[in-house]
C-alpha cells in the first residue's frame, strides 16, 4: 500500500516536472541549433547587422537581423497604438456604462474574437486589408500599417478583458467618494477609476505586446517580406519582415548555417518575448503589492 502511494506520487511529480523539462529542452535545442551562426558572426553583429543575405551566390553570406527586430517592434507597437485606446474605452464601457444586454453581447463577441484562428485573420488581412491599403493609401498594401491593424484586432479582446478586470477591481468606495463630491461619471472614470486601474492595464498592454511580437501567421501574410528597414524609417506603408516571418518564410528550404541563423532568430525572439512577459508579471505583482 505504502509503496504504491509512493510510486503514484513520483509519477505525478514527473508529470509536473514535464513543463520544466520541456522549457529546458527548448532552450537547449534552440542554443544547440543557433549557436553555430551566433559564434561565427558574433551576437552583436547578428542582432545589429543590417544585412540578411543567407544564400550568397557570390562571396560570404551575411546574417544581420536588425531590420527584422525593428520590424517586430514596429508592427507590435503600431498594433498597440490602435488597440490600446480602443480596448480601454471598450473596457470602460463594459465595466462602467454598458447596460447588461450590451455587456453580454460584448463579452460574447470578445470570446468569439479570441477564438478566431490567427491564420484566418491573416487571410482576411491578405484579401481585404492589403488591397484596401494599396488602393487608398498607396504603396504595396503589404505594410507595417496592415500588420499593425491585423495584430490590433488580435490584441483587442485580450486588452479589453484584462482592463475590464482591472477596472472592476477598483474599490467601490473610490468611485462613490468621487461621485459624492459632485463629479460627473466621466470625470470620475478619468480621474479616479482609470488611474487606480493603471498598473493592471499597463500589465495588459505589455502582455499584448509580447503576444504581438510572438504572433506569426497573421503577420506573415500581410507585412510583406523585405529584410531591410523601411525607407524613410517612419514610412508605415513600407513592407517589412518581422522575426517570426523570417522563420516561416525560409525554414522550409534552409540548410546548414542558414537554418542555424533561423534558429538564432528564434533565440532572439524567445528572449524578447520572455523579457516582456517578465516585465508584465512584475507590473501585475506590484499592483497586488499596493492593494493590500
Amino acid at each position: 500500500m505504502k509503496t504504491s502511494e509512493r510510486i503514484i506520487e513520483i509519477l505525478l511529480f514527473l508529470s509536473a516536472a514535464t513543463a520544466v523539462m520541456v522549457v529546458a529542452l527548448i532552450i537547449i535545442f534552440l542554443l544547440k541549433e543557433g549557436i553555430p551562426v551566433l559564434a561565427k558572426v558574433g551576437v552583436a553583429n547578428f542582432c545589429l547587422g543590417m544585412n540578411w543575405n543567407p544564400i550568397a551566390i557570390a562571396g560570404e553570406p551575411s546574417y544581420g537581423i536588425f531590420p527584422m527586430i525593428v520590424a517586430s517592434f514596429y508592427v507590435a507597437i503600431g498594433s498597440l497604438i490602435i488597440a490600446v485606446p480602443l480596448g480601454i474605452t471598450c473596457a470602460v464601457f463594459l465595466a462602467e456604462i454598458a447596460p447588461s444586454w450590451a455587456r453580454s453581447i460584448l463579452k460574447h463577441a470578445i470570446e468569439l474574437l479570441v477564438g478566431i484562428p490567427s491564420v484566418i485573420l491573416g487571410f482576411i488581412g491578405l484579401v481585404l486589408l492589403v488591397p484596401f491599403i494599396r488602393d487608398h493609401f498607396g504603396g504595396w498594401g503589404f505594410s507595417i500599417l496592415t500588420g499593425s491593424i491585423i495584430l490590433a484586432i488580435m490584441a483587442l479582446p485580450r486588452i479589453i478583458s484584462i482592463s475590464d478586470d482591472a477596472i472592476r477591481s477598483v474599490p467601490r468606495e473610490y468611485k462613490e467618494a468621487s461621485l459624492a463630491l459632485g463629479a460627473t461619471h466621466w470625470h470620475t472614470i478619468r480621474k479616479v477609476i482609470l488611474p487606480s486601474a493603471r498598473s493592471g492595464i499597463v500589465a495588459a498592454v505589455i502582455l499584448a505586446m509580447a503576444t504581438s511580437i510572438g504572433e506569426t501567421m497573421a503577420v506573415v501574410m500581410v507585412t510583406g517580406s523585405p529584410s531591410i528597414l523601411p525607407d524613410p524609417i517612419y514610412d508605415i506603408l513600407d513592407p517589412v519582415r518581422p522575426m517570426t516571418s523570417n522563420i516561416v518564410l525560409e525554414m522550409s528550404y534552409a540548410t546548414g548555417d542558414h537554418a542555424s541563423a533561423l534558429f538564432a532568430t528564434g533565440i532572439v525572439l524567445f528572449v524578447v518575448v520572455a523579457v516582456l512577459n517578465i516585465i508584465s508579471h512584475k507590473a501585475l505583482k506590484s499592483k497586488m503589492g499596493t492593494r493590500r
Partner: peptide, 8 residues
C-alpha cells in the same frame, strides 16, 4: 513561448 519557437 511563441508558437513559432515551439515549432522550431
Amino acid at each position: 513561448i511563441p508558437s513559432i519557437v515551439i515549432g522550431l
